[in-house]
Simulated scan of single mutants.
Amino acid sequence: MTIITDEGNTITVNSQEELINTMYNSYYYDFVYSFDVTLADRTVLSIGNEEAFRELLESCCGDNIIDDCGCDE
């Protein structure tokens, strides 16, 4: 997954830990679409835009996106 930070830096993250660190260290960030997500059942989803990403989060976390959603890493 690639992220563009508030300083215009493009960062490729390869793990959940790298994603969290990148998001924590940036005031603003945006995702570069499209990217693939592998679900716990090994299904691979291609996330092509923000709407698809929101749908993924909602399917995983319901209305409780901010709190720990309990999804498998």
Rank of each mutant, 00 (worst) to 15 (best):
D6K: 13
S46Y: 00
S15I: 01
N25V: 00
Y28S: 02
E18K: 06
I47Y: 10
E17Q: 03
M23W: 07
D67P: 07
D6S: 13
E73I: 11
C61V: 12
C69F: 11
D30H: 12
D68P: 14
G48I: 06
I11N: 03
L57S: 14
E7K: 14
Y24Q: 01
T12R: 15
I11H: 08
S46D: 08
N25Q: 10
D68V: 14
Y24V: 02
V37R: 06
N64G: 02
C60F: 12
E58R: 14
D63Y: 11
R54W: 12
F35S: 07
N14Y: 07
F53Q: 14
I11R: 11
M23V: 06
Y29F: 06
S26M: 02
V32F: 00
A40M: 09
I3R: 01
T2H: 10
Y33M: 02
A52Y: 05
L56Q: 10
L45A: 06
M1W: 07
Y33H: 04
F31Y: 07
L56F: 00
D41K: 03
M1V: 11
L19C: 02
C61E: 09
I3H: 04
D30R: 14
V32M: 00
V32K: 07
C61Y: 12
G48T: 12
E50R: 13
S26P: 03
L19E: 03
I47D: 10
C60Q: 15
T10N: 00
T12Y: 10
V37E: 00
N25D: 04
N9A: 10
V32Y: 00
T5F: 02
T5L: 05
N9M: 01
N49L: 08
E50W: 06
V13A: 06
L45R: 07
R42P: 04
D63L: 11
C60R: 14
N9G: 02
V32L: 07
T10Q: 04
F53L: 15
Q16S: 10
L56I: 05
N9T: 10
L57Y: 10
I3D: 07
E7D: 13
I3P: 03
T43A: 08
G48H: 05
D6V: 09
D6A: 05
N14H: 03
N64V: 05
R42I: 09
I66F: 15
M23I: 12
C71Y: 01
T22V: 04
D63K: 07
V13R: 08
L56N: 00
A52E: 08
I4P: 04
A40K: 13
T2G: 08
V13S: 08
I66Y: 12
N21C: 00
E18G: 09
N49H: 08
G62K: 00
C69T: 12
D41S: 12
C61P: 09
S34H: 03
T10C: 02
T38N: 11
L39K: 07
Q16W: 05
G8L: 09
N21I: 02
T10Y: 01
T43N: 14
V32D: 02
S15Y: 01
Y33I: 03
G62H: 06
C60A: 14
D36I: 04
S59W: 06
I65H: 13
N64F: 05
V13C: 14
R42Q: 15
T2K: 12
N14D: 03
I3L: 14
